[in-house]
Design a protein around this nucleic acid. Structure first.
Lengths: 207, 207
DNA sequence: GCGCAACCTTGTCAGGTGACAAAGTTGTCC
DNA sequence: GGACAACTTTGTCACCTGACAAGGTTGCGC
């Protein structure tokens, strides 16, 4: 095997773990399987990361960074305030439920984190990061339209994000391979956009 | 060991598995650990259920039945329509986030189900059962007040339940042992009640 | 009381897991 | 070119996993 510095091997291994786990689930992410994914001896994983949990930490951090990057990249072009929110949300939906399965992976890690204080801390940071980003984008959108939000951006962001999270869970639970996404779910997504915009404007959110 | 018919051993094992997994997580639910929990030889598990997955199926079905039972038992007493919905939702919140950890367990199974078609089918049934129950209760509440729901009960139920699910996820992700529940989460719960009632009445849902 | 089916236990298999020690290899700096 | 540190590999340990076969035990029906 080529002689690669650890600083380079780290991201390689994280990427390999991410690929493998995305494909086959977190449970399939044994140190052996990850090493094999990269074509490296198993002990290399331990040399590079020490313990398996340290690898997992790094993987979740990478996942977090990617996710927030995705959200930021979906900043909408034009339209009314409501339209822009809708556009943003649908872009987010597409990138979350797309076939790459990152959303599934994130849910699996969230489940793991419920029993593991170390992982939970990272997930907490992820959650706060996402909420901050959402609140910030919401404020920017409102500013661009000369609107004053009818309640704190953070509260609206939490309302939206929890609803969105519940929707992706529902989607993942009900989806059948090869089938169209459940129309109820998409309907509920529009409803969520409507209530969210309603909270922004302090006005009725009639769909 | 006492000579117990399989029809009796089954629920005993399911209960033992439920206790163990609630306490230590789904991952700790090996056939050996479950057998030990009941004080029985490991092979008894295989004799009774055949395969481990069959045990898991039975556990999830039990969990499902309990959950829907809880929801039905929370039918509120009196008050205005909005108050009754609020009462119901808060009772549901208490029983979901209570210390027994069934909510955590359910999330863990949901995560497992994302990669396992057999489990997924059960979770799908659970989801539909809950949504049906919620829609039914909502209709009954509206009827009792002589109200006409402004949109299909099912759609409102999906809106509420996805939001609720997202909130429990957020709660589980952010909670720190021994700390008060995050005030933002409770605020968001009230907000969810408000938007849900708003959808029922077809009117603005100003908190 | 005898037989048979249902139930229980012991013992074991094959495979997978994280972790590490020891020894080999590479590359860089003097 | 020699020394030393960084990296890699092989090999192995102790443990846990689901599954099952063989044989012992219980209790019900006749």
């Amino acid at each position: 095997m080529a002689h690669v510095p650890a600083s380079e091997r780290r991201p390689q291994l994280v990427q390999a773990a991410l690929d493998l786990m995305t494909r086959e689930g977190v449970a399939a992410g044994s140190t052996r399987a990850i090493a094999a994914e990269l074509g490296v001896a198993q002990a290399t994983v331990h040399y590079t990361f020490g313990t398996k949990k340290d690898l997992y930490r790094a993987v979740v951090e990478q996942l977090t960074a990617e996710f927030i990057g995705h959200v930021r990249a979906s900043y909408p072009g034009d339209g009314s305030f409501g339209e822009q929110v809708g556009t943003l949300v649908h872009a987010l939906w597409e990138s979350s439920t797309g076939e790459d399965g990152r959303c599934v992976l994130l849910s699996e890690f969230a489940a793991l984190a419920m029993r593991d204080p170390d992982l939970q801390e990272i997930m907490r940071a992820l959650q706060h990061g996402i909420e901050g980003t959402a609140a910030e984008m919401l404020t920017a959108l409102a500013d661009a339209h000369g609107l004053q939000l009818a309640m704190p951006a953070r509260e609206i962001a939490v309302h939206f994000l929890t609803g969105f999270d519940g929707l992706t869970d529902r989607y993942l639970a009900l989806r059948a391979p090869g089938e169209q996404p459940d129309p109820d779910t998409l309907r509920a997504l529009d409803l969520l956009v409507a209530t969210t915009v309603g909270l922004c404007l302090g006005a009725p959110a009639r769909p």
